[in-house]
C-alpha cells in the first residue's frame, strides 16, 4: 500500500433498486491531493463522495480511508472522525448560533471544554472571515456566509480530508466567489479535498486531478490542463462544451 494514499476506493457498486448508481468505481487519493469530480446530474458523483464517509451504503467493493475500512465494525465512526463534509444546502443547525454550530462537535464528540471549543471556533471563523457573525443565528446570514460557517464547522473537527458536495450550487452567483476563495485557501494549505462541482474555474486553479463521471462510471481522469485542452472521450468533451459555453 502506498503510504501517502488516504482514500482507496475499489470496484465500488451501488444501486437504488433496479437503478445502478455506481458501477465498478475505482479511485485512489493521495494525501494532500485535490480532486474535482464533475459530470451530468444523476451520474453518481454525489453518491460516490457520500459513500466515502458512510452517508450512503454501497453494495459491493471496498473503501479504505486512512487505513480504516468502512466495512469493519465501528469503521464508519472512525472514518467520520477523519473526514469533514460540506453540503449543497449548508445544513447548519438553525436552532443554534453560529459559534454553537461550530463548537457542538468538538464539545460533544471530542470532549473539549466550552472555553477551548470557543477559542477553536473563533480561530476558524476568522479563517473564513466572519468572526463578527459568531453570535447570530444561521438564518440571519447570507447564503455565502452560511456556507463559510459550514466549512468552518467541519474544520473545527480537524479533518484530514474534506468532502464538498456541490458547495456553491445553492448560492446566488454573487456569493459563489467568497466560498470558492475559502476553498482555494484551504487547498493551498495542503488539505486533501474531494470536490463535486461544476465550477471549472476553481477546478483549473486548484485541482490536481479531474474526474469525469457519467452513468455511474468514471469515464475519464486527468490533470485539468490535459482534460481542458484535449478531453480523451467524446462524452467528456460534450459535457465540457455544454457547461463552458456560457
Amino acid at each position: 500500500m502506498n503510504a501517502d494514499r488516504v482514500i482507496e476506493i475499489s470496484s465500488l457498486n451501488k444501486s437504488f433498486g433496479d437503478f445502478q448508481v455506481l458501477t465498478k468505481v475505482d479511485l485512489n487519493v493521495s494525501l494532500g491531493e485535490r480532486i474535482v469530480i464533475c459530470g451530468p446530474s444523476g451520474s453518481g458523483k454525489s453518491t460516490l463522495i457520500r459513500c466515502v464517509n458512510g452517508l450512503e451504503q454501497y453494495d459491493s467493493g471496498s473503501i479504505i480511508v486512512d487505513g480504516i475500512s468502512l466495512s469493519e465494525p465501528g469503521g464508519v465512526e472512525r472514518v467520520r472522525a477523519e473526514v469533514g463534509m460540506v453540503f449543497q444546502q449548508f445544513n447548519l443547525f438553525p436552532h443554534l448560533t453560529v459559534i454553537e454550530n461550530l463548537t457542538l462537535g468538538p464539545m460533544k464528540a471530542r470532549g473539549l471544554s466550552r472555553k477551548d471549543a470557543d477559542v477553536l471556533a473563533m480561530e476558524y471563523l476568522e479563517r473564513v472571515r466572519i468572526p463578527e457573525q459568531a453570535h447570530k443565528r444561521p438564518r440571519e446570514l447570507s447564503g455565502g456566509q452560511q456556507q463559510r460557517v459550514a466549512i468552518a464547522r467541519s474544520l473545527c473537527m480537524k479533518p484530514k480530508i474534506m468532502l464538498f458536495d456541490e458547495p456553491t450550487s445553492a448560492l446566488d452567483p454573487e456569493m459563489i466567489s467568497e466560498v470558492l476563495d475559502v476553498m482555494v485557501e484551504l487547498a493551498q494549505d495542503g488539505m486533501t479535498m474531494l470536490v463535486v462541482t461544476h465550477e471549472m474555474g476553481f477546478a483549473r486553479k486548484v485541482a490536481d486531478r479531474m474526474v469525469f463521471m457519467d452513468s455511474g462510471e468514471i469515464v475519464e481522469t486527468g490533470t485539468p490542463s490535459e482534460v481542458f485542452e484535449a478531453p480523451k472521450t467524446q462524452r467528456f468533451k460534450a459535457f465540457l462544451d455544454k457547461i463552458l459555453q456560457h
Binding site: L55, E77, F87, N91, K108, A109, A150, C156
Partner: peptide, 15 residues
C-alpha cells in the same frame, strides 16, 4: 426535520 440535519450532525462526529 430535514435529513441533512442528521447527516451534518453525524459528520461532525455526533453519535
Amino acid at each position: 426535520i430535514p435529513k441533512g440535519q442528521t447527516e451534518a450532525a453525524r459528520t461532525v462526529g455526533l453519535t
